[in-house]
Structure formats: C-alpha cells, structure tokens
Nucleic acid binder design. Structure first.
Length: 243
DNA sequence: CCCTGATTCGC
DNA sequence: GCGAATCAGG
C-alpha cells in the first residue's frame, strides 16, 4: 500500500477529527496502526492527546537498542536538575477531606426482631395512615414467605470483614456456637464470623430446612414473574466490537 | 492483557 | 519515506 493523495487526505481528516490510529488504519485498510502513526508524524500532525506524557525522553533513551559505536564523551556533565526555579504549580485543591460518612450500620438481626412493619415509606403519605394487611404466601414448612420488596438485606449472611482472635469470650457464652450446630437447630448466623459475639440462631428448625420458621422466611423468598423483574443493568461498556 | 500515541531504526 | 519493533502510560 502506498500513500496516495486520497489516503493521506483520509488520514489527515480522521486524525484531526480525533479518530485513533487503529481506527484510521482499519478504515484505510491493509495498513497497520504504526504505519498510520508514523505517517501522521511525518506529515507533522502530531498534537494528539497521548497516553504517554512528556517524561524527559531524551535522558532515558539510547540504552535498549544496540549501543552506538561512539558513545558521547562525558565532557559535558549534564546539569543534574536545576529545579530551583521550579514551575509554579497552580494551587490544586488536592483532595477534599472526605467528610466522615455515616455508615449506616446494618441492623444486626437481634433475637426479637419484629418484621411486621412493611417498609414504612418515608414519603409524604398524608392521606392514608391506614396500613393494609400484608398478604403472604406460605412456605412448605408453614413459614410465611416474604413478599417481593420485603427483602431484608441486612439479614444476609456476610463474609468476615476483619480478623479477630478466635478466643472464646463472654459475649458468646450461652450462644449457639459452630460446634453446637446439628440438624435440629437453626443455623442462621447472627452477626459476622470472627466477631466476638458471632453465633447462630439455635432455634428449633422448621422440619426439613436448615433454619427455623422465622429464618426460612428470610432464606426462601417468592420469585417475581419474569416480566416483573428488573432487567439486568447494561454492561459498563459496549461489549465486543461490531465489525 | 487490552488499549493508546511516540520513538527508533533498518530497509 | 516507510513501517515493524519497541517503549511507556492508562
């Protein structure tokens, strides 16, 4: 391939319109990205936002390839770095001190959690303070399933967040520990593994399930019909190239 | 590892 | 002049 008038014209136009060298090469066809860049530089149109910035290229070079037969005599020791009159950096507002974000501590599932409250909406419901009775489906063992939207995220078992000495403490005294688990008691975790008071629910299981009736209600939830589910979020960026 | 542009250097 | 090889940052 040769650089005809038309191809040079296309190159110049695309280059100046912000197309990448790869795109230009693909458009021209039969040519590499490097060829495009090389040609662009020879044409003198280089001002492009380059990922590799100016990092004093002159000094660090000349080593990787075969050393030239005549190494320049060190007659003129290059001045180290006269940074005395350093360029005045604009007052960059570095990083705004992150205000202490009030981390909403996930409410630990206490022993006596009342879940009757159906997500009281904080909106201005001036009209209807009347709470409609909640309809629930009944699970296999007789537990009440949660309704969609009733999901209680904080009750989800979470991975360990920090390491804590596995030393028995008073906090765990009387609680159901890992060693106390059997197939007759509820294995729903209370707290997080590694924390001093981490334990398990320990109630009598809903027969045929690993959890008690209450926790079965959290573990097994009715699924929405397909058409009512939220579509999956779009991919962060466009997926495979179309070509 | 993918992308990017820059540079070098043998042809 | 050309472009592959290489470099280097994102």
């Amino acid at each position: 391939m040769s650089w005809t008038e038309e191809r040079i014209s296309t190159l110049t136009k695309m280059w100046e319109s912000g197309s990448t060298a790869s795109q230009i090469a693909e458009e021209l066809g039969g040519i590499s990205r490097n060829a495009v860049i090389g040609k662009a530089h020879r044409l003198g149109l280089k001002p492009r936002p380059s990922p590799v910035k100016n990092a004093e290229p002159a000094a660090a070079k000349a080593a990787p390839v075969a050393a030239p037969a005549a190494p320049p005599p060190p007659a003129a020791p290059k001045p180290a770095a006269p940074v005395v009159a350093a360029p005045v950096a604009p007052p960059v507002a570095a990083k705004a001190p992150t205000p202490p974000k009030p981390v909403a501590a996930p409410a630990e599932p206490e022993d006596e959690v009342e879940i009757d409250e159906v997500e009281a909406e904080d909106e201005d419901d001036v009209i209807a303070p009347v709470k409609a009775p909640v309809m629930r489906s009944v699970g296999p063992g007789g537990f009440l399933r949660q309704n969609p939207g009733e999901n209680s995220a904080p009750l989800t078992p979470a991975p360990p967040r920090r390491l804590v000495p596995a030393r028995p403490s008073d906090a765990v005294a009387g609680k159901t520990s890992l060693l106390d688990l059997n197939d007759r008691i509820c294995k729903w975790p209370i707290g997080h593994p590694g924390e001093p008071d981490f334990h398990f629910c320990g109630d009598k299981v809903n027969p045929g399930f690993p959890y008690c009736v209450d926790h079965c209600g959290h573990a097994y939830q009715a699924q929405l019909p397909r058409r009512d589910r939220r579509p999956p979020p779009p991919l962060p960026y466009g997926g495979p190239r179309v070509r």
